[in-house]
């Protein structure tokens, strides 16, 4: 099964995973990792360990492109084709992930999750204002 790892600042990732589970119930293979207290080297090493333990593929969900989490993800995934990195994680993407990961291959899953994440960002309540 394709695994998911939410790598973020502070406890943002842990909270996202907790909320996903409060919506769909217990989820296997979706965990969170914080950059708190970790140097770039440490975070990269930790991600490399997680990657080595995954054979079906891994989606790394990152909060912010350009931050230490995104840097470490890129450094850790240097030689790995079984991992994709998606920045700008939101709840819709994680719900899409647990819904689709059993039926799509890693590439198609990544593409769908990017679309899903983007579609989830919308201004609402503007009907009638043109």
């Amino acid at each position: 099964m394709i695994q998911g790892l939410v790598v973020t600042h502070g406890s943002l990732g842990a909270e996202l995973v907790r909320v996903v589970e409060s919506i769909v119930g217990t989820v296997e293979g979706l965990t969170a990792l914080s950059n708190q207290g970790r140097s770039a080297l440490d975070l990269t090493a930790e991600l490399q360990e997680r990657l080595a333990a995954t054979d079906a593929g891994l989606v790394l969900f990152i909060d912010d492109y350009g931050g230490s989490c995104a840097n470490a993800a890129q450094l850790a995934c240097r030689d790995r084709s079984r991992a994709v990195i998606l920045c700008g994680v939101n709840l819709a993407m994680l719900l899409g992930f647990v819904t689709w990961r059993d039926t799509l291959d890693l590439e198609e899953l990544a593409r769908r999750l990017v679309d899903k994440g983007r579609e989830a960002i919308a201004r609402v309540g503007t009907r009638g204002r043109d």
Binding site: H9, N35, S39, A40, L41, D64, G66, G67, S68, N71
Partner: peptide
């Protein structure tokens, strides 16, 4: 900074 170039630095 042992995270080098990251949010605290660029932003």
């Amino acid at each position: 900074d042992d995270r080098f170039i990251h949010g605290q630095v660029t932003v």
